[in-house]
């Protein structure tokens, strides 16, 4: 099947009456080599991962710069360590984003962001995440922002004052 036949011109051997050295037909059996090659091929095909890790891009304003934002244009999101989300505009009283579990909360948050941003296109979102919260909580909230095409947001640390406001609720 997978042989290479190197015996050429068998018919010429007795030509001319002269006794030539008999050429032996060499047949190399290629089967094992091809087997190995296909084995390697399968290996490489199965181990190759074409996907590269995804990344989420964040643009922060340079340090030391402060921007004045009108109170009515500022939406503050506060995320606590047990993943309760509170939102408020300006200095209004924070309201909780309802949801039975994390996924429901995130969906509710997405809806809220969409509503608020279509109501006020100049809205700037400020995200404050509790230091004790998990990193994934922050990524989830950022993801929700990205999904709603909100690229004017900023991250701020959650300070004691924020915790007091939330505790007073």
């Amino acid at each position: 099947m997978a042989d290479v036949d190197l015996s050429q011109s068998k018919g010429k051997q007795k030509h001319g009456g002269k006794r030539r050295k008999k050429r032996v037909g060499v047949r190399i059996d290629m089967t094992p080599m091809v087997d190995v090659a296909f084995l390697l091929l399968t290996f490489f095909m199965l181990t190759t991962t074409m996907n590269k890790p995804q990344t989420m891009e964040i643009n922060l304003p340079p340090g030391g710069q402060t921007a004045e934002v009108a109170e009515s244009n500022l939406l503050t999101l506060r995320v606590t360590d047990d993943f309760r989300i509170f939102w408020n505009i300006g200095t209004n009283k924070p309201a909780a984003v309802d949801g039975s579990d994390k996924k429901a909360k995130l969906i509710a948050l997405g809806k809220l962001l969409k509503e608020q941003n279509s109501a006020n296109p100049k809205l700037i979102t400020l995200v404050k995440v509790d230091g004790k919260a998990k990193y994934i909580d922050m990524v989830d909230v950022m993801d929700e922002l990205n999904l709603n095409n909100i690229n004017r947001f900023s991250l701020a640390p959650m300070v004691e004052d924020d915790k007091k406001i939330l505790a007073a609720l």
Binding site: P53, T55, M56, E57, N59, L60
Partner: peptide, 14 residues
């Protein structure tokens, strides 16, 4: 931010 790296990426899974 202090080092003026204001654009960075967070590695995530899809």
């Amino acid at each position: 931010q202090k080092e003026n790296i204001t654009r960075f990426n967070l590695v995530t899974d899809l």
